[in-house]
Design a protein around this nucleic acid. Structure first.
Lengths: 171, 171
DNA sequence: AACCTATTGAAAATCATTTTCGCTATCCAT
DNA sequence: ATGGATAGCGAAAATGATTTTCAATAGGTT
């Protein structure tokens, strides 16, 4: 069986991602509610991690390393195991989305409702990432999953290329 | 700087992917030609690896582990380092494409000309992968990269969901 | 307040992938 | 063809991100 970590690796529990994506930005207490509803516990560390995503621009992606560093910078001591566990839980709960930007590590960003999903244009040379939206994408994604009888969780469109500045460097 | 391995990790040389994708299925000697043109050497191991992809259904993806096992099964002894090096070279030369199917490892498949690119619908529970094509995808990909001044290398649309049989298992 | 157990941090373990290094094989020029 | 230069090979060690283990602690519940 596949090992799609962020979807199914939160200890041993098996559970579906909540289809009604909670919008955390409103209520300060929402994280606790969402966690408890599924038997997870609210902790300071989880709140701090989520705060990072909420205080960053929407669609900003972070990896475990960056989260660790940013929390250190603001005086919070946290272990990598806690970070990874928190990320998995929050992906499972539909609060975060895991991104595969082909850099040998995983990135996470605040999950956005389906119809507002954005996609990524990656420079394979310098790693610069631009975001874009396109309704056609979501359209195709839901058509495809429907036509195969899949229940849709999310979709990612990633375009790889070389950005203008790297083009000049390389020429 | 980013570390997009398959694009830029072939020892130390820096070089662009050949925009004219060679169609290997015709000429038996083409691999040697393509390799030598860029200063790489033709080896038995590289041929054997490429053969695996060519004898499989088009669009079939393999990871390093599977390649290693399949070659063992057919009596070929080959090391993982050789496999990984060969895969990188062939991606660089545009013979293979690297796929991010979110399973903690990389998959490869024969590269196909842009307009025939196919995309993936992945069951996050059992790992089953369905392929599909959609011209809109390529369209959007080239529009986006063009509008940001990127030179386009490739694009991947990956849809995550739960397949029908896993849905019944989980309910 | 007491209990049950999910969560934490630290350290060890995994796992895919990469690198090192001495040896071999391919390519190019003679 | 032959020989030299060096790309590529295999084996083993190294890396780096992520996961797991385990004893101590803290969150949620009664």
């Amino acid at each position: 069986m596949a090992n799609l970590t962020a979807f199914f690796n939160c200890d041993d529990r098996t559970m579906e991602q909540d289809p009604a994506l909670p919008s955390l930005n409103q209520e300060p207490e929402l994280l606790k509610t969402v966690l408890n509803k599924e038997g997870f516990r609210f902790t300071n560390q989880r709140q701090k991690i989520l705060d990072l995503f909420q205080s960053a621009a929407l669609g900003h992606h972070l990896n475990a390393e960056e989260i660790h560093q940013q929390l250190l910078d603001q005086g919070e001591k946290i272990s990598f195991s806690t970070i990874y566990r928190a990320l998995h839980v929050m992906v499972r709960l539909g609060l975060l989305q895991e991104l595969e930007l082909a850099e040998g590590r995983k990135y996470y960003e605040l999950n956005t409702p389906f119809m507002n999903q954005h996609h990524h244009l990656v420079c394979v040379h310098c790693g610069d990432v631009k975001e874009f939206e396109d309704a056609k994408m979501t359209q195709v994604g839901s058509n495809e999953s429907a036509s195969h009888g899949f229940s849709l969780l999310n979709c990612q469109f990633t375009v790889y290329g070389i950005c203008p500045s790297c083009q000049s460097l390389l020429s």
